[in-house]
């Protein structure tokens, strides 16, 4: 479980996060949603330690991130996997080496042993026979799957995903969403996904945190998000024609 207590983050005069408090539960896919510029990615980067919050605290299983010593931080890094928006695969390495990279950093096992684990996770994300290809030689959807494989290769306790299905066709996007949810359940990990895609909310949103202008304005489940009267949330949810039509049908049926 990850607990966030009253974190703020500003860059110069711009206050991006304004005192956010919430919890992200273990074994669930937790979603941070909101419009572009609402502070979702900054919050995610605070969670993974890429940005330091200006105030507030983040707890990983009751241990404050700001109070961890170097060894505790190293262990936390080993327990953390992240899927970046563009994949962030290392261009100079082939797929096999990309996925093996976190293992090599934390393990002294021999290459054949590491390779066995790499092949296992590549198989888990339905990618086989791509080991020797380079990131530039595979499709966007495959890059995302390789990135998931790299994120889970160390059997993390925490998985963070930044817009995992941006730039993908709807079918591949659903596939990636389901893969993230399945991995979360299989390994009982705490997964935090940043998205503005309502399809993802429908597919995998077990706990949803809604941000607007750096503030947390609503949190709940995917069932609750369609029933809430919070104007900001309804504005966001029903901004697409499809969801407007669904709502109108529901109203007519009621």
């Amino acid at each position: 479980m990850i607990k966030v207590e009253n974190i703020t983050k500003h860059f110069g005069e711009d206050e991006i996060l304004k005192g956010i408090s919430t919890t992200f539960e273990r074994g669930k896919t937790n979603l941070i949603i909101g419009r572009s510029g609402s502070g979702k990615t900054v919050m995610l980067k605070c969670l993974v330690g890429l940005f330091l919050p200006n105030s507030g605290e983040i707890f990983f299983e009751d241990k404050a991130l700001g109070e961890m010593n170097n060894e505790e931080q190293r262990i936390l890094r080993e327990e953390t996997g992240m899927l970046f928006q563009g994949g962030a695969l290392f261009d100079s390495m082939n797929i096999e080496d990309n996925v093996m990279f976190p293992l090599r950093m934390f393990s002294d096992k021999s290459r054949p042993e590491l390779l066995a684990r790499v092949n296992e996770v590549l198989k888990r994300v339905d990618l086989e026979n791509v080991n020797k290809k380079f990131p530039s030689e595979i499709s966007g959807g495959m890059k995302k799957r390789v990135s998931i494989a790299r994120a889970i290769v160390n059997k993390p306790k925490y998985l963070f995903c930044d817009e995992p299905n941006s730039g993908l066709d709807p079918k591949t996007a659903t596939l990636i969403d389901n893969l993230i949810q399945d991995i979360t359940k299989e390994n009982n990990i705490t997964t935090v996904v940043v998205t503005h895609d309502m399809n993802s909310v429908m597919e995998i949103g077990e706990k949803i945190v809604f941000l607007k202008n750096g503030k947390l304005v609503w949190q709940g489940t995917k069932q609750e998000i369609f029933k809430t009267n919070n104007e900001d949330v309804t504005d966001f949810v029903y901004s697409s024609d499809l969801f407007k039509k669904i709502r109108n049908i529901q109203i007519e049926e009621n």
Binding site: G49, R77, F160
Partner: peptide
């Protein structure tokens, strides 16, 4: 610079490098 733009440097940091 390309690594910075494509978040590869962030990926290194998250991995703990």
């Amino acid at each position: 610079g390309s690594m910075r733009v494509t978040e590869q440097i962030d990926a290194l940091e998250v991995i703990g490098v």
